[in-house]
Computed example of a mutant assay.
Amino acid sequence: MQRWAGRLLIAVALGHMVLALGSVLPGLRTLAPDGLLGMIGAPWGPPQPEQHAAFWSSLGSFAGVQALWGLWVLAAAREGRQPVPGSGLGLLVLTALQLILAPISGFWLNLVPALLLMAAEARVRVAPPEAAS
């Protein structure tokens, strides 16, 4: 379960970045004449909502952190240990907050890895202790 949760976290993050960058890159010269990082603009300049939305939906999104989270979960599974206890609940709470802010979004996809992580954590809690060798 834990490996599937990690894989799904990575897949959702990569899918998000592909779709977000696919929608941003064709209009990049209009959105950010100074390049992708120029989308944020100078903090003292006038607000540019189109540029800001393009940045925060692509490079500034949670996708990079989510991919790292998935890699961390996979690494823990390969080593035969659980990630930090409560990481499934943490992901569930984060996903719930994201869904409150953007109910029509792909955040719904994060419910599956959150529930898988919670199930893996519950399995560890109810497993009998290993016999000492």
Score class of each variant (00 low, 15 high):
Gly38Lys: 06
Trp44Asp: 14
Ala119Trp: 07
His16Trp: 13
Met118Ala: 13
Val65Pro: 00
Gly27Glu: 15
Met1Glu: 14
Ala75Lys: 00
Met17Trp: 05
Leu8Lys: 04
Pro49Trp: 04
Pro47Val: 14
Phe107Glu: 10
Ala54Pro: 01
Glu79Ser: 12
Val73Lys: 02
Ala11Ile: 00
Leu99Tyr: 06
Trp108Pro: 06
Val18Pro: 08
Pro83Gln: 03
Glu121Trp: 00
Ser58Asp: 11
Ser23Gly: 15
Ala76Glu: 09
Thr30Val: 11
Gly88Asn: 02
Ser87Leu: 11
Gln66Leu: 15
Leu111Cys: 14
Arg3Thr: 15
Ala54His: 03
Arg81Glu: 00
Ala54Leu: 06
Ser23Pro: 06
Ala5Ser: 10
Leu28Val: 06
Ala76Asp: 08
Ala127Gly: 07
Ala114Thr: 10
Ala13Ile: 03
Phe62Gln: 09
Pro26Arg: 12
Ala67Gly: 08
Val112Phe: 07
Gly60Phe: 02
Val65Phe: 09
Pro85Gln: 07
Gly90Phe: 06
Ala132Pro: 09
Pro47Gly: 14
Gln51Tyr: 05
Ala127Tyr: 03
Leu91Tyr: 03
Ser61Lys: 05
Pro49Ile: 01
Ala20Leu: 09
Val124Asn: 08
Leu101Asp: 14
Glu50Asp: 14
Glu79Ala: 15
Ser57Thr: 12
Leu111Arg: 09
Val112Asn: 04
Asn110Asp: 12
Arg125Tyr: 03
Gln48Val: 13
Leu31Ser: 11
Arg3Glu: 15
Leu109Thr: 08
Ala132Gln: 14
Trp56Ala: 12
Ile100Ala: 14
Leu36Tyr: 12
Ser105Ile: 03
Arg125Thr: 07
Trp108Gly: 11
Pro113Leu: 08
Gln48Phe: 05
Met1Val: 13
Gly70Phe: 04
Gln2Gly: 15
Ile100Thr: 14
Gly90Lys: 06
Met118His: 10
Trp44Gln: 15
Leu25Arg: 07
Gly80Leu: 08
Ala53Tyr: 07
Leu71Thr: 09
Gly27Tyr: 02
Met118Cys: 10
Val24Ser: 10
Gln82Phe: 07
Ala114Tyr: 03
Trp69Val: 01
Gln51Pro: 04
Pro83Cys: 00
Pro113Asn: 14
Leu37Ile: 07
Pro129Asp: 12
Ala132Gly: 12
